[in-house]
Design a protein around this nucleic acid. Structure first.
Lengths: 263, 263
DNA sequence: CGGCGGCTTGATTCGAGTCAAGAACCGTGG
DNA sequence: CCACGGTTCTTGACTCGAATCAAGCCGCCG
């Protein structure tokens, strides 16, 4: 697998990219979508170039028509729209192995308002649509792409139900649970989430002030650490507060770890 | 096209079904998804049987694993989940020509909690998965199916942004606009919507009481009729209140009619 | 050291939920 | 034809969670 990594780096040219080996988030993600190592290989060979994007910058600018697709290799990004008044509404966070803008490939003319923004410094792989077309010839990869978009949609629906039904605590807790679960599924085991309370607010549909108060409460409950960043101490309790049932994420194993059954 | 209709009725056996001709909602829908008349023909031939479902009953029972797909021919249904406390959360309404449960075909094991309920008396066409597999061999149909699921997802995302950002008025108005626009796109031009305020509440994420008050306000503004059912009088004003921009529906023409541009 | 972005806290407002009860509108059966 | 029971719709009074406004604080980077 070391060789594979070297290959990817060579193909990319000068930029040193760390996350394309067989145990990388991308590899794990593809596997969970039903693709195999050959598919990963094809994908990596199709990469046009690797790019770093600084925190705060757009990976995909809203409305700008592009003929290329992006895969997130490292860091955290968000899929968002900007509302008339300039406010940012986040549909979902993206982590290593996530496809940033597959939705554009499927419906190019649509979703003109949506974009992807880097929340931390980020590494992405860029694939021209020409290459994408070739990748779609591989049935397992095509299916994996489709599944990926469907899972994203499921995530957005889940967010919708929570947004309407839950209290602020439930919303925030649920959001954090989801990120932990999804990161875990691609091998990122840290219990610290590199996102700001502002990001959480925009993703949970709450004001920053109220997110802060909610976070305070969760800290007092010893669910989050007292540090000023977001760090989860007690996942079990967090899942309970969130009423989190991770089945909608369709993750390979470890479901039991994240499935709450209350009867 | 008369002949076509007869054929469908014959194939279905005894039940008289009215909405499978070339100018039917289903035909218009398929057309807007990029499929042609031959595809419609294949689809109709693949129909295993036609079924009527009474208002209030489930077209697709949540959680029940089935090996068949459903297309809505007439009436109104909703795609919903039931929450722990028995509450119903509606993701979207479905109208003639909509595919009820394509999401299950794509990810059978998932979305076990979601179901489809008839809101009025409803006519559906049922297609076994075996037949679906054959339909997927037709590239244009396969693409149409995929597009359909993506558009649904876009609708859910739109609902999410509105749910977080908007006032009750905006939410209700937006919901109504969407239904009018989508029905219009499949040839249903009535300005009356056959859904209850309870349905609107569950779809907008508001309490019934508050939906009622909102509806009252809209009536006083002469946007809705004074009748006890939901009837839109002034679409233009409704769209303005909703800040409705119908582009996310990706409808064929008439976009100008439903696109609000505020600069 | 100064500035800026993110975090924290308090005071106040307000939109929407909840509870409760009555009215209008069916369809159904006597 | 009317009486009945079940939805759905309507209205009022009250509560409360979260938004907003307004400062002050902390930590980092130039």
């Amino acid at each position: 697998m070391g060789a594979r990594r070297e290959f990817a780096v060579c193909a990319a040219g000068t930029l040193h990219i760390s996350n394309t080996s067989f145990d990388s988030p991308l590899a794990l993600r593809l596997k969970s979508l039903g693709a195999d190592l050959d598919d990963l290989d094809s994908l990596l060979q199709a990469v046009t170039r690797y790019v770093r994007v600084a925190a705060g910058a757009d990976v995909v600018r809203p409305g700008e028509p592009v003929r290329r697709s992006t895969v997130l290799l490292a860091g955290v990004a968000c899929y968002y729209v900007r509302s008339r008044d300039g406010g940012r509404s986040i549909f979902s966070f993206q982590h290593g192995g996530d496809f940033c803008d597959l939705y554009r490939y499927v419906l190019p003319e649509r979703d003109a308002t949506a974009g992807v923004q880097a929340l931390t410094d980020v590494e992405v792989a860029v694939i021209d649509y020409r290459e994408m077309d070739r990748l779609f010839a591989r049935p397992k990869l095509a299916l994996a792409f489709w599944r990926s978009t469907m899972l994203e949609a499921a995530i957005h629906r889940e967010r919708l139900t929570i947004a309407r039904r839950g209290s602020a605590q439930e919303r925030v807790a649920h959001l954090l649970c989801e990120q932990l679960a999804r990161r875990e599924a691609v091998g990122i085991d840290s219990s610290r989430l590199p996102i700001s309370q502002i990001d959480v607010a925009d993703a949970a549909g709450l004001s920053v002030v109220h997110v802060n108060r909610t976070v305070q409460t969760l800290r007092h409950l010893n669910v989050l650490s007292e540090a000023s960043h977001l760090e989860v101490i007690d996942r079990k309790q967090l899942a309970q507060i969130a009423n989190f049932d991770g089945r909608y994420l369709n993750m390979p194993q470890d479901l039991s770890k994240w499935t709450v059954r209350v009867d």
